[in-house]
Design a protein around this nucleic acid. Structure first.
Length: 989
RNA sequence: GCUGAAGUGGUGGAAUUGGUAGACACGUUGGACUUAAAAUCCAAUGUCCAUUAGGACGUACGGGUUCAAGUCCCGUCUUCAGUACCA
């Protein structure tokens, strides 16, 4: 009986499901291990072969850890709120919940076919009210918390209120808005309830603020910074503009330093940590305030606050530049400059963010006519505006030191501003000198003769002394906007009394998403939830009621925005810990304390600055408030690379006649084009330049052109992507297959000796390129074990690589070979005999290699190791039952179905998944050592391979023997003996 | 520009601490089996020279350290990813 993977795989998938083989328990003698995948968004397109890559890797690791005696938690779920389902709902009127459920079913079916060891009993769906109850609850807890800088953690807002009523806010050291007024305890008590709430809002970790946001008109919603790529939306690529709106925000900036420091405690790749560090963007320097001395400012002196990382260069400042959007600009501009300034502001406002980014070389700016006073020299410094200063970084103002900063230098050169030199040593006649070393300061008053470090210390001290600045650390990380004007997301548990937000208590959650008739924003621009009729909060009944009941005494309007996609994904890893039979907490303390954090997290690196930062933020918050016992969610993180598609391209001939371009029905085989020395990069064929090629192509075209006298002047190749599933390994495609598609139905195909070939190009796997390969067809043709092995075999996990179905025959043949080696007439072909030395050597070599590979996540090389082992067993005619048993355990994480089947045939009636991983014994690698003399540079050299576990004495005696040999050969005793234990001994004469 | 990763046959990729470069697989070529095809099996397959024996060259490029370098050091080039007037 041949290897019937279909029935074997079905049988074991059913078996695992029926026996709940992979159900995790929350109590065990064994040590725990938590392996997690980034849960998928269930899109309508289903899975392609790229999706399971990370899941297969994590599954191998999870199965391996079970063999190694760990109690493994390996769950899966769905990030089921999101834009595509909503867009689909807008187009079709279909409720997103329905499409989402259908998509989840498809995903589940596809995942089940691959034979993952997920514990599905803990499945999570972010759009499930039982789940988002707790997302809403976390939101209310963020609202009810503030960040206490002294204890360096979040505390309940009640603590803050206590502080306010006992001593006011003058001594409160909080991370809060900058515009908080100072008040005493007495004043606090005298404030109206509404005023108190407004003040508290400035302290809460989530707060309503009128902020400038990234508005995407096409999607009708705001986007977070990480949802924007190159100035357009991440989803759909629509343009994004900046707009002021009242939005919920998350005070993630309070955690900037801890998010940065926490990176040192976790095992992530350097590149990923670096991305997060860049995103947080810490810079250490000082803030300096400059008094404005313009006539307009006389009665009411303004001062400009700047941030600098180079306070040591303060005496080199020859002008100040403000961002055009800076609030002081209009206030300080002199009369005769106001026209120019207004024109400039208008011009920059018109330019989109994208234009401004693309055009970084052009220097532009305008003088305001105002001057500032240098804090020490009291010299007047001109104030300019320029769009190279960004309004949303630092204070939106810089002190320009042309000799020490290239942009300031260029600006000064361009507008003929002074470039005073304060550096002793460097030459600044051509460029600025921005290094922090290699100079001493000059022309700098009390800083003269100092180096960078000393000068910074001194100048900060002096600035503090005159109360015009202090040392300051600045972060690029902005507070995260948390409102979305969408339907398909978590509703906020918030209602409004007199315009002030109120939280709905835990016991009344979840606030379920109401039904609406249409999923679009309203005509007045309100979010889709404004269309819901039953959308008001009755504070007496503690229930959602019809809008008509709003009376603002007991029934109030509810929030119309929903939460962003990252809300539900920021804590889902805790939800898996509980088996969710009750819903009293988001996970019980026992479960949280048992599983603690995720030991291994595998997912794509597109989440480097989004999900992975937000989850860390929420976990730190939950930890501060003692809701969870850990400070970091993911101990170790691996980014799997993307699997790319290999598109298939067919070339259609286009031609130019009478100066206009025509499309023909002629398609030419790519091999033919290559024979004509016509690459794809060279797709214009003029009569004059390449007459031979031209006339050849023209002869094909004549088959299509009705008017044979037409004068063709130029021929082009138009690339068309075709379904890759029609193309075989040799890049050939059957014309009948092509003709099934409408556009090719009456095409004329120019073959190369009857064969039509396509060109291939590697690009992202996507429906629109027709290059999607579906795992279902692979499983149907080759089986899940082949798919699993092949996905690993493709290359290193973390690397992006193109998919090529042709190669799968290699691993598939291997499985067939293995099956044939051990199964004969449906009988297992082994006996209970002593294994030979060779058998054991092969086995233990494999144990060692596979164990190392899994620990290092180099799954690709262990697939090769298995192939080599089976080849060796085959030549050794290995029939030992004990050897096969160990080998099956080794391979079972990779190819679990075939391993289970053979395990059963060996007479075991339990699943192989709980068997202990075989122990490596170095003794079995002992065998005859081989040695060979090599002549090198006229000297004799011996290299001899020694057994790994050889004793020191044995090595010495072995070396002595060879020293003698070498001395005989060469006539001289060896000069140097290099002994690498367990490896190779070099004797150099 | 900055940060990070990487450059090895026709292709994907091996090579542990510096120790026989190209494992394993795909592809290609030849052969066996077959009426034929598929499947399977066997052999060859880095480049060049040579009838063979054998030899020379070879891990992006140029240097260096070493008995020994894909691996370490210095310099150059290229590719990919992230990020960007960040003061």
């Amino acid at each position: 009986m041949s290897y019937d993977f279909r029935s074997i795989e079905k049988k074991w998938q059913d078996h695992w499901e029926k026996h709940q083989t992979f159900k995790a328990v929350n109590h065990s003698e064994k040590p725990k291990y938590y392996v997690l995948d980034m849960f998928p968004y269930p899109s309508g397109a289903g899975l392609h072969v790229g999706h399971p890559l990370g899941y297969i890797a994590s599954d191998i690791y999870a199965r391996y850890k079970r063999h190694k005696g760990f109690n493994v938690l390996h769950p899966q779920g769905y990030d089921s709120f999101g834009l595509p389902a909503e867009q689909y709902a807008i187009q079709t009127g279909q409720h997103p919940a329905i499409t989402t459920t259908t998509n989840i079913e498809t995903y589940r079916k596809q995942l089940d076919q691959i034979g993952f060891s997920f514990d599905w009993s803990r499945e999570v769906r972010t759009s499930d009210p039982k789940y988002y109850k707790w997302t809403q609850w976390i939101f209310t807890e963020l609202f009810n918390s503030w960040y206490h800088k002294t204890t360096d953690k979040a505390e309940p807002i009640s603590n803050l209120i206590k502080l306010f009523s006992s001593e006011g806010n003058t001594n409160v050291n909080a991370h809060c808005d900058e515009d908080v007024p100072l008040f005493s305890a007495k004043e606090w008590a005298a404030f109206s309830e509404n005023t108190q709430q407004q003040i508290l809002l400035k302290y809460r970790l989530t707060y309503l603020a009128n902020t400038e946001v990234n508005w995407c008109p096409a999607l009708g919603t705001v986007l977070a910074n990480d949802e924007i790529v190159n100035g357009t939306s991440e989803r759909g690529g629509h343009p994004v503009i900046r707009k002021k709106m009242t939005q919920w925000s998350m005070r993630i900036s309070a955690y900037a330093e801890r998010l940065l420091q926490g990176l040192n405690t976790i095992d992530w790749t350097d590149s990923l940590k670096e991305s997060q560090r860049n995103w947080i963007g810490k810079s250490v320097g000082a803030s300096v305030s400059f008094k404005v001395v313009s006539a307009a400012a006389q009665s009411n002196p303004y001062s400009i606050e700047v941030f600098t990382t180079r306070p040591d260069t303060l005496f080199g400042a020859s002008f100040i530049t403000l961002a055009p959007e800076h609030e002081l600009v209009t206030k300080i501009t002199s009369q005769n400059q106001s026209k120019a300034v207004n024109a400039y502001i208008e011009a920059t406002a018109k330019r989109s963010e994208r234009d401004r980014m693309a055009d970084v070389k052009t220097i532009s700016g305008v003088f305001t006519g105002a001057y500032a006073e240098h804090p020490f020299t009291k010299q007047a410094i001109p104030i300019w505006i320029g769009d190279y200063v960004l309004a949303n970084y630092g204070t939106g103002a810089v002190m320009a030191v042309p000799c020490g900063d290239q942009r300031d230098y260029d600006f000064a050169k361009h507008f003929n501003i002074d470039i005073p030199n304060i550096f002793e040593g460097p030459d600044i006649s051509q460029t600025a000198y921005s290094d922090k070393t290699g100079f001493t300061l000059t022309n700098s008053d009390f800083l003269n003769g100092m180096t960078y470090k000393k000068a910074v210390k001194r100048v900060v001290h002096e600035l503090e002394h005159i109360n015009q600045g202090q040392g300051k650390t600045n972060y690029r990380l902005r507070d995260a906007v948390f409102s979305r004007q969408r339907y398909w997301g978590e509703p906020f548990p918030v209602y409004y009394v007199n315009g002030m937000p109120q939280m709905i208590a835990k016991e009344h959650l979840p606030i379920k998403l109401p039904d609406v008739e249409k999923y679009l924003p309203t005509e007045t621009g309100d979010p889709p939830l404004a269309r819901a009729n039953t959308w008001a909060w009755d504070t007496k009944a503690h229930a959602v009621v019809h809008k008509d009941n709003i009376n603002n005494t007991s029934v109030y309007p509810l929030e119309l925005n929903t939460m962003p996609g990252w809300a539900g994904s920021s804590w889902y890893f805790f939800r898996y810990m509980e088996d969710c039979t009750h819903n009293e907490a988001f996970a019980s303390n026992e479960a949280l304390n048992y599983w603690k954090n995720v030991d291994l997290y595998i997912g794509g690196n597109e989440h480097a600055t989004g999900h992975l930062l937000y989850s860390r933020f929420w976990v730190k918050f939950l930890n501060d408030r003692a809701f969870v016992p850990v400070d970091e969610p993911f101990k170790k993180l691996i980014n799997q690379g993307m699997i790319l598609g290999t598109s298939a391209i067919v070339y259609r001939l286009h031609y130019t006649a009478s100066n206009s371009n025509h499309s023909s029905r002629v398609y030419v085989s790519f091999s033919k084009l290559k024979n004509l020395a016509l690459g794809t990069d060279q797709n214009h064929v003029c009569k004059a330049k390449q007459p031979n090629v031209f006339y050849e192509l023209e002869s094909y075209l004549k088959q299509d052109v009705t008017d044979k006298t037409i004068d063709i002047t130029d021929i082009q190749l138009a690339p068309l992507r075709v379904n890759v599933n029609y193309v075989n390994a040799a890049n050939e495609i059957a014309i009948e297959n092509l003709k099934q598609e409408h556009q090719f139905r009456d095409g004329i195909f120019i073959t190369d000796h009857g064969v039509f070939t396509v060109n291939r190009e590697v690009e992202k796997m996507s429906k629109r390129w027709f290059n999607v390969v579906n795992p279902d067809t692979i499983v149907a043709n080759y089986g899940a074990d082949s798919l699993r092995l092949y996905e690993m075999f493709l290359g290193p996990l973390e690397q992006s690589k193109p998919w090529n179905t042709a190669g799968i025959t290699g691993v598939h043949n291997f499985l067939k070979k293995m099956w044939k080696l051990y199964v004969n007439q449906n009988q297992i072909n082994v006996i209970d005999c002593e294994p030979t030395k060779d058998n054991l050597k092969t086995l233990h070599k494999t144990i060692k290699k596979v164990e190392e590979d899994i620990e290092n996540f180099s799954f690709n090389t262990s697939v090769s190791t298995f192939m080599i082992a089976v080849n060796e067993f085959s030549t050794q005619q290995c029939t030992s039952k004990a050897v096969l048993e160990d080998f099956l355990i080794l391979i079972s994480p990779y190819a679990p179905h075939i391993a289970e089947e053979l395990w059963l045939k060996l007479g075991h009636n339990t699943s192989i998944s709980t068997e202990a991983f075989p122990k490596f014994d170095a003794n079995h690698l002992v065998e005859s050592s081989k040695n060979y003399p090599i002549s090198f540079n006229g000297k004799m050299r011996f290299t001899l391979e020694l057994p790994i576990n050889m004793s020191k004495e044995a090595i010495e005696s072995e070396v002595m023997t060879h020293q003698k040999t070498i001395a005989q050969l060469d006539g001289k005793p060896p000069k140097k003996v290099i002994v690498i234990p367990g490896k190779i001994v070099n004797i150099v004469s």
